[in-house]
Design a protein around this nucleic acid. Structure first.
Lengths: 194, 194
DNA sequence: GCCAGTGTGGCAGCGACTGCCAACAGGGCT
DNA sequence: AGCCCTGTTGGCAGTCGCTGCCACACTGGC
């Protein structure tokens, strides 16, 4: 089923806008770049730009909405014998690993530099945690989630590991693999959180 | 040293504004409340309101800027023998423990309900982590922070524990103490992250 | 009483974002 | 070909958060 002309042009316009935005963000920073400028250089009106991307922060997000789906699916598909932690590890690695390194690295640099983007990024991660929580609770067999912080802790800690691994990965320009870093973080927990 | 008239009136105006804001936020929600309305009902101009609170989100923050200072100071003041993790625990407990429960509970509920507030809250927590990172690196004697994720992990995990404890605390309406919850989270890490 | 210094209000303006309306082009219909 | 429905676009006006600027008022020290 080949895409119709309309759909193809819609994809093109979307790519044109987000490419322009990413270029301008890296060149002159997120706060210093205005919507008017992005729209002008991408050759569309501001109104159209906001029809493609609801907010300025959305301009940098590369399909992270699928992340939640991939992560929860991976975690759920782990066999029942493996521990909750192992399942979480598999889930986060499935999200962190496959990306095109160069592009992701550049994007993460922009994100970590601008406070509002960083907050937005964490917010998405929080929604990830919320989606993950019932899955882990079920796997651990927790009865009273309002009084038992164990599942929440595991999810938050796995998330924190992924975060620390990601930030170190950016700090060392991707020279160390994300999986290696994640496992170093996990090892640190086991030895130093006592 | 009694406060001068100016200082007293300044404190009064500040309290008047933030009380009005918190009331309106709980009554009708954060997004639905406009700065103009708060200023009108508090009896000041918008311009003055922004001189007291830099952003709309700041209207709900009860001196959280001091949190960062208290936390880093507490961590730094721990004797050199105690482990980095113990120092972090002491720091976070010094921030979580002393608050007036009722007011904090209400504020947290407002914060968790509005996405932009939640993001702002996280942003502050991230700045906390950034401030904490060099302290922990020094304590652990880390040479190459760009390649060694251990300090970052400890800070992120302690922060995640505080987060999970706080959310469970709100979920159970404060019936379980924050210190107890934090230690349950820590215990979970030791047993289930292997 | 007078003179800094500080707090205040009003106004104009910017940037992100939205609702509304008119114009236009694609793609299926006769 | 002509026609119509539908989806896409641009422009415009307006809201809201937020800032710079300037004039005014009031406090506190001489």
């Amino acid at each position: 089923m080949p895409l119709t002309l309309r759909e193809r042009s819609r994809l093109m316009v979307g790519r044109e806008i987000s490419d322009t935005a990413l270029r301008l963000f890296t060149e002159q920073g997120f706060e210093q770049t205005t919507i008017a400028q992005i729209a002008r250089e991408a050759g569309v009106s501001q109104r159209t730009l906001f029809r493609y991307f609801g907010t300025k922060e959305d301009l940098i997000g590369g399909g992270e909405d699928t992340f939640a789906a991939v992560l929860t699916e991976t975690v759920e598909s782990q066999p029942a014998e493996v521990s909750a932690w192992t399942a979480l590890r598999a889930g986060f690695l499935s999200v962190l690993a496959p990306a095109r390194q160069e592009q992701v690295l550049e994007r993460m640099r922009v994100i970590l530099r601008a406070a509002s983007l960083r907050a937005r990024f964490i917010e998405k991660r929080l929604r990830l945690q919320d989606a993950l929580l019932p899955v882990i609770e079920a796997r651990m067999g927790i009865d009273e989630p309002d009084r038992d912080p164990r599942a929440r802790t595991l999810v938050a800690v796995a998330s924190a590991c992924a975060d620390a691994a990601l930030e170190t990965w950016v700090a060392c320009d991707g020279r160390i693999g994300l999986e290696t870093l994640f496992d170093q973080c996990a090892a640190t927990i086991r030895t130093d959180c006592g």
